[in-house]
């Protein structure tokens, strides 16, 4: 069975954080303890959205050492394919669901003398567990710079400012406040690491600023979960299993492979971990690569595709699956 090990859970709490974000709390249905995890880890939540199976990754925001329950926060995406809408509209306390064991693709570098976190919007969630990990271990030398659209949409900003007044700065877009990146990149102690989670534009802005300022690549960390983008429907031939599948507009290639009963490997389902990498046997058409796992050369070669987020537009595609 592909993916990380599964945990059967019950939804015990759903809280509206603000007009766009809801928080969900899960306990094990068997009454046991959740696995311990490390700050920055995510879980993959399985949903049965009116017959369509969706598996979306969400960062764990609770304390890594609290094994009684897991907590995630989900931003509603009205334009998306429906995973967040399903969670917002259909998931209620008492419901039983399946989530995955924690997986961490965005862990702290424990050698760092200091951690600087840059969060944009819902990108705050992995930092919540990382901050809890650092403050519990009492070696929490960190700064958080958190950009939000408006004060009311700044999820958890008030709590963070209250608990860590000396470590946290919040910037409001509607008041034209901007993270003073150049200033922050200057004069940091040796051994400082930078972590970014937020929209693509913000990640690129911070990483390129840091690179320009001479920061070593090993000190730069980022996480961007790509939601699979909807697109034109297309057909794919699976050479190993001998099946021909149809990928619907609102479906990812990976979901269509799974819906055909093929157990394909996966882990993050967000284009980051590399687990679902699939060989292309033949193709006639254009790839729409959305992952950040394959290199530019691999994207151009037409020999590989990451079915969790990437699509195809053309006459025929044959995959080694």
């Amino acid at each position: 069975m592909a993916g990380a090990a599964k945990i059967s859970v019950k939804v015990i709490d759903v809280v509206e954080v603000n007009e766009l974000v809801k928080r969900f709390k899960f306990e094990r249905t068997d009454g046991g303890l959740m696995p311990t995890f490390s700050g920055g880890a995510h879980t993959v939540v399985e949903m049965n959205d009116q017959g369509t199976r969706r598996l979306n990754p969400y960062s764990l925001m609770s304390s890594p050492t609290d094994r009684s329950a897991y907590t995630i926060s989900v931003r509603r995406d009205d334009e998306g394919r429906g995973g967040s809408l399903y969670l917002h509209n259909h998931v209620k306390p008492g419901m039983e669901m399946t989530i995955s064991n924690p997986v961490n693709l965005f862990s702290l570098d424990l050698r760092a003398r200091k951690h600087i976190f840059f969060a944009g919007g819902i990108g705050i969630t992995p930092f919540l567990s990382q901050i809890k990990q650092l403050s519990a271990a009492n070696n929490g030398h960190f700064e958080l710079h958190y950009a939000v659209r408006t004060a009311s949409l700044g999820s958890y900003a008030d709590e963070l400012l209250e608990h860590f007044p000396n470590n946290v700065d919040v910037y409001h877009d509607d008041k034209d406040q901007q993270i003073p990146l150049d200033k922050l990149l200057e004069g940091q102690p040796l051994g400082t690491h930078i972590y970014v989670c937020g929209p693509k534009g913000m990640i690129n802005w911070i990483l390129s600023g840091a690179r320009k300022a001479g920061w070593p690549e090993q000190a730069l960390h980022y996480e961007e979960f790509l939601a699979p983008e909807p697109g034109k429907a297309f057909d794919v031939e699976l050479a190993v299993t001998g099946k021909t599948i149809h990928v619907k507009e609102q479906q990812s290639l990976l979901e269509a492979i799974e819906a055909a009963g093929v157990d394909a490997p996966y882990l993050c389902r967000g284009g980051a971990c590399g687990m679902c990498e699939t060989q292309v046997i033949r193709s006639e058409g254009d790839f729409i690569h959305n992952d950040h796992w394959l290199t530019d050369e691999e994207h151009a070669s037409g020999e590989k595709i990451m079915p969790c987020v990437s699509r195809f537009d053309g006459k025929s595609l044959v995959l080694d699956r």
Binding site: A4, A5, P35, F37, N101, V103, L267, C273, G274, M275
Partner: peptide
């Protein structure tokens, strides 16, 4: 290495 990096908790 690729295999090892993908080893997950509990597996």
């Amino acid at each position: 290495l690729k295999f090892l990096l993908n080893i997950q908790q509990g597996a």
